[in-house]
Simulated scan of single mutants.
Amino acid sequence: MAPEADPGYLEFLKPAGKLSLEQAFQIYHRTYVVRLTEALRKTYPAVAWVLGDNFFNELCRKFIEAQPSVAYNLADYGESFSGFIQETSTAKGIPFLPDLAKFEWIYKEVQHAATPEPLPVETIQELLNSDDVKIHMIDAMELFESDYAVYDIWEHRFEPAYMFEDVNWNTPQCLLIHKKQQKVLVQELQPVEAQILRALTAGRTVSEALTPHANSLSPERIAQLFEMMMRAGIIEDVMSAEAY
């Protein structure tokens, strides 16, 4: 049901053609809801795929009424969608849905971030041979962890219809979401790799990030992790701990 217009607001409007002010307001409201629903669908295509058109449209209508847009750019609307899903009955029976929405928002943010300019691999290799250093990551990068395989679900989003049995979603995932040149890439990480990357992103030195895992990571695995970081292009700078 569309909301009624505020009588005080209607005093400042003039009717158009044969429409009354109330009729004009209802048309505007329907158009407003449609535009915001399409904006949400563009940001959250996998959520829309899981729910189907009818349930997704109804969820969007409730969200729009609860949290009207204050953003000039429609692409900026819907950041709190995952939290809204968590608080509604929509998430019941679909436990991964809030995390799926959170993943899609992060993906969109990385996609819209400025194209990164990572350090050349040769420079990184030379600097990492110095004394203990801190690594500054590119801005167009996020780490994401979920109890559910949200990336596997997301990859199916263009298929005709969602079926629970088509995806083994009940497994945890740690993901690196980053932009390389103009493309957004998603890479699955081992939990220990995600922990090290989080420590480095938080400003820990390389030795501080690695020390808690000294007994569980071989030198070969550590080398593989840093090789992955260099290939991914997520390192923007390497500085000595004193100069950082």
Rank of each mutant, 00 (worst) to 15 (best):
G78N: 10
N73G: 01
D152G: 04
E145H: 13
M230C: 09
A5S: 05
E145W: 04
F56E: 00
D147L: 12
E188V: 12
A140K: 04
H178L: 08
F81C: 09
I234A: 04
I138R: 00
M163D: 07
H156L: 03
A149N: 03
I234E: 02
C174Q: 14
L127A: 12
I124A: 02
L176M: 15
E155N: 07
G78L: 11
N168D: 14
P95V: 00
T90A: 12
E227T: 11
N73D: 13
E65Q: 15
N215E: 15
K18W: 06
P120N: 03
P172A: 04
P95Q: 01
A140L: 01
K183P: 05
I124H: 00
K92F: 06
W105Q: 09
K18Y: 08
R41A: 15
W49V: 03
E227S: 10
A101E: 08
N168E: 14
Y77F: 14
F96L: 02
T211H: 09
F103V: 05
E104Q: 10
S69Q: 05
F81M: 09
H112S: 14
L19F: 08
Q173V: 12
G83S: 12
Q111D: 15
F84Y: 14
Y44K: 12
P3V: 06
L100T: 00
A232M: 12
M163G: 04
H213M: 02
K183V: 15
L128W: 06
L189P: 04
G78F: 10
Y44F: 15
G83V: 06
F103K: 05
Y28I: 00
E208N: 01
A223Q: 09
M141F: 13
S82C: 05
P68Y: 10
S146H: 02
E126G: 04
M228H: 05
A241K: 14
A140M: 02
Y72M: 07
Q111K: 12
E155G: 04
Y28M: 07
L74S: 13
Y44C: 08
I222V: 15
T115F: 08
L40Y: 11
K108S: 15
L176V: 03
I85D: 03
L185G: 02
S216Q: 13
V184M: 02
I85T: 05
A91R: 07
Y32M: 09
G78E: 11
Y148I: 00
S20D: 01
P45I: 09
L40P: 10
S240C: 07
